[in-house]
């Protein structure tokens, strides 16, 4: 006999969201199991503190649970929408801690109690491939382009804050952001169809 949980597991993310909007707890649990890992890793990457990352992910997922019906499929995937909510909350936390510089490295493996998430589905394998491509593209970027992108995206710094921090003209920071993103985008475009 198929359980509600098993039925939910067979659904695509876009099909889970209306169920979450109707307060289906099994659908929400499947949604968390699919994206909770990367959400937590992202929050930890930005905040650099385990407790703060947990609070951030919990708040982000609760807001999705309470407002699941707001997902708009014309504006990207459920996963990217979810991660943008997590990222925005994490950056808000960083900014609210006035004067505290965000952690910009991910070197404290002891703080993590886990293993890399296993690939469960073909979709996840494709995500892994995309991640490998983007990591490859980021690593091939000139250091100065990679740095401004990482400071902006993972550090939550504005372009003028980055210019001050790195003692660069604002125009140089803008140019490096654009060139770096163009290269990553180009790498994605050349990937497997």
């Amino acid at each position: 006999m198929t359980t509600r949980r098993q039925k939910a597991e067979r659904l695509a993310d876009e099909e889970l969201m209306p169920r979450i909007g109707r307060k289906d707890t099994e659908a929400f649990e499947v949604f968390y199991d699919r994206h909770g890992g990367v959400a937590w890793s992202l929050a930890y990457r930005i905040l650099g503190e385990r407790g703060a990352a947990e609070d951030c992910v919990q708040e982000a997922f609760i807001s999705i649970w309470r407002n699941g019906g707001r997902f708009d499929p014309t504006r990207g995937s459920v996963r990217s929408w979810t991660l943008s909510i997590v990222r925005n909350r994490a950056i808000d936390v960083l900014r609210s801690k006035a004067g505290k510089a965000p952690k910009m490295t991910f070197d404290d493996d002891a703080i993590l109690e886990s293993r890399p998430a296993e690939e469960r589905t073909e979709e996840e394998a494709m995500r892994h491939e995309t991640a490998t491509e983007v990591r490859g593209a980021l690593s091939q970027l000139p250091g100065e382009q990679s740095k401004v992108i990482q400071l902006a995206y993972f550090g939550g710094f504005s372009q003028s804050e980055i210019a001050t921090m790195l003692d660069l003209p604002l125009g140089t920071v803008k140019g490096r952001m654009r060139l770096g993103l163009e290269k990553i985008r180009g790498e994605l475009a050349e990937g497997p169809a």
């Binding site: 959400a39 992202l42 609760i62 991660l83």
Partner: peptide, 25 residues
């Protein structure tokens, strides 16, 4: 450019979050 930005979180190595997080949530 948007897909390049959307792909950035995927560059973070995925890890299993603490089990207490799922229990609380």
């Amino acid at each position: 450019l948007s897909p390049a930005v959307r792909a950035l979180p995927e560059t973070v190595e995925p890890r299993t979050p603490p089990s207490a997080l799922k229990r609380r949530l």
